[in-house]
């Protein structure tokens, strides 16, 4: 697993209070990991801070699963 994927997983485990085994690439933040709309906003902000990127709102809407977050950040992280 890439270093980015490791960090993304760690952030999700920390913010959503879930077990590492639940954080699979297909897992949806809202449907599988118990996030509400505010949790999702917070996750995106943490990704922005950790990876020093700015994620526009229209792109943030497409980040709904662990895998989508990892591939977005692998593409855009500086």
């Amino acid at each position: 697993m890439s270093e980015i994927a490791e960090k993304v997983k760690a952030i999700i485990i920390d913010k959503l209070g879930v077990e590492a085994s639940e954080v699979t690439p297909e897992a949806s933040f809202t449907n599988d990991l118990g996030a509400d709309s505010l949790d999702t906003v917070e996750l995106i902000m943490e990704f922005e801070k950790e990876f020093n990127v700015s994620i526009p709102d229209d792109q943030a809407e497409n980040i709904g699963t662990v895998g989508q977050a990892i591939s977005y950040l692998e593409e855009h992280a500086k």
């Binding site: 505010l38 906003v41 917070e42 902000m45 922005e48 801070k49």
Partner: peptide, 8 residues
């Protein structure tokens, strides 16, 4: 970069 939980 205000946290979404800040106001609530």
């Amino acid at each position: 970069r205000f946290n979404p939980f800040f106001i609530p």
